[in-house]
């Protein structure tokens, strides 16, 4: 298990050097985006933020306004597979280098990662406090009125945000591997 420190914006070379099973820590800017955002982009919408070379985080945080400032109370990943129909297209459209989520994604996203130089990182699902601690500042929000708080695009400044590479830019997928092995194991135990 190798630990890599990533600083945004991230170059394609750095992304290509990552492999399934590597542990990474991200420092820099991360944008959240989940179901509503993916559908919106797929339907031809565009966002008022530039994410080129950046990181899209499948997350619907708990945000509270305190003294006029947004404060993040909890921010773990949401299940990514729901974005499978749209993800590859969104990676290309926004010029993403990293998608963070949980549960893994499918072949279409894997092909997109390979073609456009992107990786899928798995954050620990449910670890909303550990991950919120890595968020140093909420820099802004867009689409709040349109999509509501959990679905809005939050711009977050993060420090050493920990994840595991589970889909790399070479076609590798830990999810595929584990599914195949567990299927085989179950067949023997039935």
């Amino acid at each position: 298990m190798m630990l890599m420190e990533l600083q945004t914006p991230i170059s394609e070379d750095v992304i290509r050097s990552l492999h399934v099973g590597d542990l990474v820590e991200i420092t820099g800017i991360v944008h959240t985006g989940r179901d509503a955002v993916h559908k919106f982009l797929h339907d031809g919408g565009s966002l008022p933020v530039d994410m080129r070379g950046g990181v899209l985080y499948h997350c619907g945080p708990v945000m509270v306004k305190e003294d006029g400032q947004w404060v993040c109370k909890a921010a773990g990943p949401t299940t990514s597979i729901r974005e499978e129909p749209y993800q590859a297209e969104v990676i290309q459209k926004l010029g993403l280098r990293v998608v963070i989520g949980k549960g893994g994604m499918g072949d279409k996203t894997s092909a997109g990662c390979k073609e456009f130089g992107c990786v899928y990182l798995h954050a620990v699902g449910g670890a909303a406090q550990v991950l919120a601690e890595c968020i140093k500042k909420v820099r802004g929000v867009s689409m709040l009125e349109e999509f509501g708080s959990p679905e809005a695009v939050w711009e977050l400044e993060v420090e050493k945000f920990p994840c595991v590479v589970t889909m790399d830019s070479h076609g590798g997928s830990l999810h595929k591997e584990v599914l195949a092995l567990s299927k085989e194991a179950l067949a023997k135990l039935l």
Partner: peptide
């Protein structure tokens, strides 16, 4: 292993949520 990393993170998260009186998970 990544499995150990996940469980360690989970334990740290449980402690932190209790200490800060904030949601264990955002969902």
């Amino acid at each position: 292993t990544t499995a150990e990393f996940a469980l360690k993170t989970i334990h740290a998260n449980i402690e932190l949520a209790k200490k800060k009186s904030q949601p264990i998970c955002q969902d």
